[in-house]
Amino acid sequence: MLSTELAGVKLKSPTVLASGILGVTGASLAAVAKAGAGAVTSKSISLQGRKGHPTPVIATYSQGMVNAVGLSNAGVDETLAEIEFAVKNAGAPVIASIFASTITEFGKVAGAVSQANPDIIEVNISCPNVEDEFGRPFACDPGIAAVVTKKVKKSTNIPIFVKLSPNVPNIAPIAKAVQNEGADGITAVNTVGPGMVINIEAAAPVLTNKVGGVSGPAIKPIAVKCVYEAYKATGLPIIGTGGVTTGRDAVEMIMAGASAAGIGTGVYYRGPEIFSKVSEEIQEFMDKEGYKSIDEMRGVAHEER
């Protein structure tokens, strides 16, 4: 039994397409859902359209990827139709990711995106590669994270998941702060860093933005630790994201306390088929170890022995 639940939203498989990966269009979200994702998340949407950073925006390296896409999107008005298309055609829950540069704007985007009826709204307060523009990510300050959560909660009736940053000394107080303001769940984590990749023949950073968020296998231990801490502090449903490429990685997230595993960079390594493959691999592990449900595995790493 691979089914799981995120704040009352039922998923057939505990795999979630992470925000920013194959999530620009509704058709693409639907295609990823059909490829086996338990739920799909849109690219983060803002009130106004944004061009993002100039290319190159992605640099792969031996252990993962560094990206500075820069939150490009067409703005909430243009993107509503994409979310609507996904909601209608995906056959799996659709998570709309939103971000903003001010508290008021967070409220407005949340209100606007609700018209498309996504199953969950993910509140991205943690993107590290727009720091210069937006100052420190909101996710680095429990006070600000709480205010954003409160504002979004007031602006919509749809369950909200707040997406947290790993780039903090301790994620627990931030997780607690968003829970206190009514967050229905947590997505942990966004990218690590920022980091930099230099091409030594070009003698220059690869990304035009010079720095970008680090994702992929290299960040998995950091992500697992964040999920573990956030679960311990809140017990909220968590989408455990960061470096998941195999079913075993997903189980690790679940044992740390996640209800589902988010997958982003893994799509690069294994294609959109990664969702059905990871599901099969989780099932294999469960059969081998005698687990009957995702819920039974959830958080077991917290038990003292």
Binding site: G20, L22, V24, T25, A27, S28, A30, A31, V57, G264
Partner: peptide, 14 residues
């Protein structure tokens, strides 16, 4: 096959 910029309607082909 990551950023999703090149996916086409309605089949979502990348």
């Amino acid at each position: 096959g990551i950023c999703g910029q090149c996916c086409v309607d309605d089949i979502g082909l990348c």
